[in-house]
Computed example of a mutant assay.
Amino acid sequence: MVHVWPLTLRDEELVLRPLRRRDRPEFDRLRERNRAWLRPWDATDPERAARQLPFTALRRWNDRQARLGWYLPLAITAGGRLAGQITAGPIQYGALRSTVLGYWIDRERAGAGLVPRATALMIDHLFAELGLHRIEVTVRPENTASLRVVEKLHLRPEGLRRSAIHVDGAWRDHLVFALTAEEVTTGADGHGVLARLHREFPSDTPTG
């Protein structure tokens, strides 16, 4: 099992890839347009005023963490356009072999099935290529869209963590969902979660 960076994952028109320098104008517009949409779900620092890390600093941090093998931060693109981000991290090996997934999506692309597919792509890569054993996703109970994502992907509910993460200026409760490698039947192509998603929700994937 080898951690590769830079990394590109594909499913039809959906591509997960690192942020590039030339993405800056489109990325900045995307974040600004979605500022209010994402505020209730974005993690915040309780000791600092909420602010978005500048693009250049964000891209450099992403690249440094990814090269060290600690995080896997990828942009979600569809049809060649930026649509959001998905990140696995911190990635832990040894006795744990686990990570936590986080993601966000452009409001204009929400409900189109991009996040479940991106998450499935990422999970399959983490299991099949990195040899991880457990993937975890934490979701605020109010986030019905994200709850639908973990439901589609058959992540197992494991309970509620009280005041688990500082989000939107306060400590918020989060529901915990998880999936282990033994719960996924992976094909020769390395796809297990994605293959199951396509079988159960074929209308979510454009053809042609």
Rank of each mutant, 00 (worst) to 15 (best):
V100K: 15
R134M: 06
L160M: 13
N34V: 04
D11Y: 05
S146H: 04
L53K: 12
F201D: 12
P6S: 05
I86M: 01
D204G: 15
A49T: 14
A181I: 13
V139I: 10
P6Y: 02
R196F: 03
A128K: 03
P206L: 11
A195H: 12
R22W: 14
D189G: 07
V149H: 02
I165G: 02
R97I: 02
L16Y: 01
T205W: 14
R134F: 05
E151R: 12
S146T: 05
R140S: 11
R35D: 08
V149S: 00
L82K: 02
G84C: 06
E151W: 10
V176T: 15
D11V: 06
R107I: 08
S203E: 13
L101R: 03
L175G: 11
V184T: 01
K152S: 03
A43S: 13
R81C: 05
G159M: 08
E136C: 08
H3W: 06
G80W: 03
S163Y: 15
L74H: 05
V15D: 05
F201L: 11
V184Q: 05
P40Y: 00
D63I: 05
R156L: 15
P6Q: 02
I86R: 01
T205A: 13
T205P: 15
T186I: 14
M122I: 02
A164Q: 11
G192P: 05
E12N: 10
I76E: 02
G169Q: 00
L194K: 08
T99Y: 04
R156K: 13
E200G: 09
V149Q: 01
A88S: 05
D204Y: 14
L38K: 00
V184I: 07
D42S: 14
H133N: 10
R35E: 08
G84K: 07
P46S: 01
E108G: 09
V100F: 15
H3F: 15
I105S: 07
L153R: 03
A110E: 11
I165T: 09
E158W: 06
L72N: 04
Y103L: 07
A170K: 09
D124M: 06
D124E: 07
A50M: 10
A120R: 06
A83V: 09
L19N: 06
A83E: 09
G113I: 00
E108W: 09
V139D: 03
T205F: 12
F27D: 10
R33L: 10
R60T: 10
P73R: 12
G94L: 10
A120M: 00
A195M: 09
D124S: 03
G190T: 06
G187R: 13
A110I: 05
H198T: 09
T99V: 07
V100M: 13
A145I: 04
I165V: 11
V115A: 01
R81Y: 02
Q92E: 15
L114N: 06
P90T: 05
V150C: 00
P116A: 04
R172D: 08
Y71S: 15
D42F: 15
V100R: 13
R117I: 06
E136F: 02
L30D: 03
R117S: 01
L53F: 11
M122P: 00
A88D: 00
A50E: 14
A88H: 04
N34A: 04
P202W: 08
A66K: 07
A188Y: 08
Q65A: 11
